[in-house]
Design a protein around this nucleic acid. Structure first.
Length: 105
DNA sequence: GGTTTGACCCTAA
DNA sequence: ATTAGGGCCAAAC
């Protein structure tokens, strides 16, 4: 893997290949990048996406392990939930139904 | 360079 | 079920 490619860019590419209506965990995305323990770094990359508004990256399809929404306060969590629901993603007890919408790998 | 910061995650209590 | 603590990684200070 070319090391000259910025980590952020690799994260964004990985997130882009999450199909509509499916979700992936931060740690899962990290695994795709070859950094199994880099979940936090993935979150860090997505946080940096904020100024952009995430228009080119489906950031809302990335959730915590077990389908938990990681965004803490403000308009964050609601926005993510709204976007997911608009894609047909189901929620159970406040979490994404990961058995149903989790990515296949 | 060392230190701090997070949209994490696992384990133990 | 909920909380606390520690380890993780990459970028920003």
């Amino acid at each position: 893997m070319p090391r000259d490619v910025r980590f952020f860019a690799r994260v964004y590419d990985a997130v882009r290949r999450i199909p509509l209506g499916r979700v992936a965990a931060y740690g899962q995305v990290a695994g795709w990048l070859g950094v199994p323990r880099g979940a936090r770094a993935v979150g860090w990359a997505l946080r940096a996406l904020r100024p952009d508004g995430g228009r080119s990256v489906p950031w809302h399809r990335v959730v915590g392990r077990g389908g938990r929404i990681s965004l803490r306060e403000g308009a964050g969590p609601e926005l993510q939930v709204r976007k997911l629901k608009s894609e047909g993603v189901r929620f159970v007890a406040g979490r994404v139904d990961v058995t149903r919408h989790g990515v296949i790998s």
